[in-house]
Amino acid sequence: MADSTADGVERRLPTDEARELLALVRDIARREIAPAAAEEEAAGRFPRELFALLSRSGLLGLPYDPQYGGGGQPYEVYLQVLEELAAARLTVGLGVSVHTLACHALAGFGTEAQRAAHLPAMLGGGLLGAYCLSEPSAGSDAAALRTRAVREGDGDWVIDGTKAWITHGGIADFCTVMARTGGPGARGITAFLVPGDAPGLSAAPPERKMGMKGSPTAQLHFDGVRVADDRRLGAEGQGFAIALGALDAGRLGIAACAVGLARAALDEAVAYARERRQFGRPIADFQGLRFLLADMATGIEAGRALYLEAARLRDEGRPFGRCAAMAKLFCTDTAMRVTTDAVQVLGGYGYTADFPVERYLREAKMLQIVEGTNQIQRVVIARHLVGPESR
């Protein structure tokens, strides 16, 4: 099943339902998301009402089981939805990706009772999630995290520590938290589902970021946060394995968002090149600029093909971690290059806030860092090729 995008590119979609879903998302993006994106990003406003709309529209639980309110869509389709949302506003596309990541542990490793109790509200009840793995001293080396959960006599867990770089920090309704319950290293980590309003849980002021100003990123402080054992996800000590599985899928979300952002930058560059006249003709007539646009478009199509290949591997139940790392690496590097080139196409105007390409460039830089820096992606890919490093 093929679907024509606005630029005439044919995409392969698996079902008529998927084609209708993409059409719905494009309509929401065009009418509800894109018009206010520049103003709200400049003001640093998070569009919570848009996430309520996406939840009502069934777009916050697309890859999860319909039994619990999910959309039952393959990753091949879900990621193309993310691309559309990110093309309209990266804060929205990334926010959906992070929310999906926050639901992963419960959906994949929770008990039947846990899923029945919590997933419907998380997937379609208007709630918003956060994923809490990184810490001030444990970023790329996530297995070194220090946040600790100690079990007390009554069976409850008490969590103390600080999480850093948390998207939706301070506004999330629930948090998937990785905390140390055992000894050092990866085997001592356990996953918990923590309510966003739990006593003892507080947020620091949001980080002052170069881009993505509408998406709050903040440290979360856990000061004696009490969590019942029925909110422990998976077995004790299984948390790091759960986190890695979530990150493989999350990297695909970032890749799709990067392609959407790059596509938005290319659209702006093409429109400007057609309208801007120099030396008596549109600048789109000059071969140097035409070649630049051609390279931008080629990178975008290659990135989409790579993230979809990884998605199809995942949908088939085959190993996809290496391909996910490649997709995250390539797509985010492409977004950085495309947005930089878009600024160049617009010249001096591209460097002003009157046009969105300068915002796209600032946002693209962030995508090379989150869900594992692109240097970490190269480490992951190399390990798949030649094995772990010698010690």
Rank of each mutant, 00 (worst) to 15 (best):
V194Q: 00
S202D: 09
A107M: 04
S202F: 03
G110Y: 02
L133D: 05
T147W: 02
E207K: 13
G139P: 05
G129L: 02
P205S: 11
P120K: 05
A117H: 05
L128T: 08
S140Y: 13
S134A: 15
T147I: 10
G183Y: 08
G188D: 04
A107K: 00
I189T: 04
A179C: 06
A144E: 15
M212G: 12
S137M: 12
L127E: 12
M122K: 06
A116R: 11
G211A: 11
R148L: 06
Y131N: 04
A130C: 12
D154S: 12
M212L: 15
T162F: 05
I159E: 01
G170N: 06
H118L: 12
D197I: 07
H168G: 03
A186V: 11
G211T: 11
A164E: 05
T181A: 08
V150T: 15
G214H: 08
L128D: 01
C132D: 12
P199I: 03
D141S: 15
C175S: 07
L123N: 10
I189W: 04
A121T: 09
A172D: 02
G126T: 05
G196C: 06
V150C: 10
M178K: 06
G196H: 03
V177M: 01
T162E: 11
A107G: 05
A204M: 10
T181I: 08
R187H: 14
L201V: 02
R187Q: 15
A102V: 01
Y131V: 02
R115Y: 03
E207S: 13
D141R: 14
A143F: 14
A143R: 13
R148T: 12
A117R: 13
E207G: 07
M178N: 11
G196A: 07
V150Y: 05
A107W: 01
V158W: 01
R151F: 11
H118Y: 14
A149P: 04
A164M: 07
L133M: 13
A191C: 14
E112D: 13
G214I: 07
G169T: 00
F174R: 03
L201S: 03
T111Q: 05
G129T: 03
K163P: 06
M122S: 03
P184T: 09
G161A: 04
G214V: 06
G211I: 10
W165G: 04
A138I: 06
V158F: 02
H168Y: 07
L201N: 02
D160M: 10
G214F: 09
L101H: 15
Y131D: 02
T147M: 14
E135A: 05
E112F: 08
A144K: 15
A138N: 09
A172R: 00
E207R: 14
T190K: 01
L106R: 00
E152H: 14
R146M: 13
G126C: 08
A143C: 13
H118F: 15
D160I: 08
L145C: 12
G185T: 07
P184F: 07
T181E: 09
R146Q: 15
G161P: 04
L106W: 00
K163F: 06
Y131L: 09
G182Y: 05
M210V: 14
G185A: 11
A102Q: 01
